[in-house]
Design a binder for these strands. Structure first.
Lengths: 141, 141
DNA sequence: TTATATGCAAAAGATTTGCAACGGA
DNA sequence: TCCGTTGCAAATCTTTTGCATATAA
């Protein structure tokens, strides 16, 4: 199961971008991350692993990866952004109020939604950002 | 068609909050707003109408109204927040990439989603934040 | 070698807060 | 009068940017 889209990193290099020490570490961390990291998380993790990185570089790398659709920026109702690797499978988030855990669910449920919006509103969908807050199974008494 | 929840303002006063000049103007503006205002929009509008208000007061008032569920904070993938009056009818946003317009759609389409999430993931929903980006009918060639 | 990337520090934009003065009830 | 509220300015937090230096190719 790959985390990043196949061939995407190669494409970056083909476009003339350099694969620096720092980018390597960041791409690694994002790819392995189970949960959704913010810029500061990444900064800390990268710094712990290597030590030679600045927060600016984290932001600049995230911006580069975003532009190339390698990471997605998600908005979980907090004051800062979170990031996750783009895998090609659309998915959405369930945030539990009790434990703070973030589960993901798949795209099939969105298809009905897309159809309805096209039919009823004439709206062509590019992107769906859907975050559901509630209580997850484990926290339900 | 009321904009704010009935009795909610009275409840605020009953709790000992004062209905100041500034709060009056802000509540008025939010209630009448057709589109989703951010703090700075509100500041400008209030200032134009009255002149005696600061940005801090706008934020403090929004925070108060948020705490009392009189306004909802919405996250339209921008760097700042937007606000809208809480009416009791759940609704969601369609943001058009071409014209930037924001349409709303109703809750019926969400019910299916809620049912599926409860059934398949055992998740009890408190809040759904759903923002769809795409091309609206008028911008579709 | 040489253009791209980095680190640092400063800037920018949104939001929050401390404090003295103000003004509803 | 009295305590909640306001305005102002300064602080905070996240993200961006300018510039001299470092480094991948």
């Amino acid at each position: 199961m790959e985390t990043f889209k196949v061939g995407a990193l190669a494409a970056l290099r083909a476009e003339g971008y350099r694969l620096t020490q720092q980018r390597g570490v960041l791409i690694d961390l994002i790819g392995q991350s189970a949960d959704h990291l913010n810029a500061d998380d990444l900064y800390r993790l990268a710094r712990a692993r290597d030590g030679r990185i600045s927060l600016s570089t984290v932001y600049r790398t995230l911006s580069l990866l975003k532009r190339h659709k390698l990471v997605a920026e998600i908005h979980l109702s907090e004051e800062h952004h979170h990031y996750e690797p783009v895998t090609g499978d659309a998915h959405y988030h369930l945030v539990c109020r009790q434990c703070g855990g973030v589960e993901e669910f798949g795209a099939q449920v969105i298809e009905t939604l897309s159809d309805a919006l096209r039919r009823d509103y004439g709206f062509t969908i590019n992107n769906v950002e859907l975050d559901v807050t509630g209580t997850c199974r484990s926290c339900t008494v």
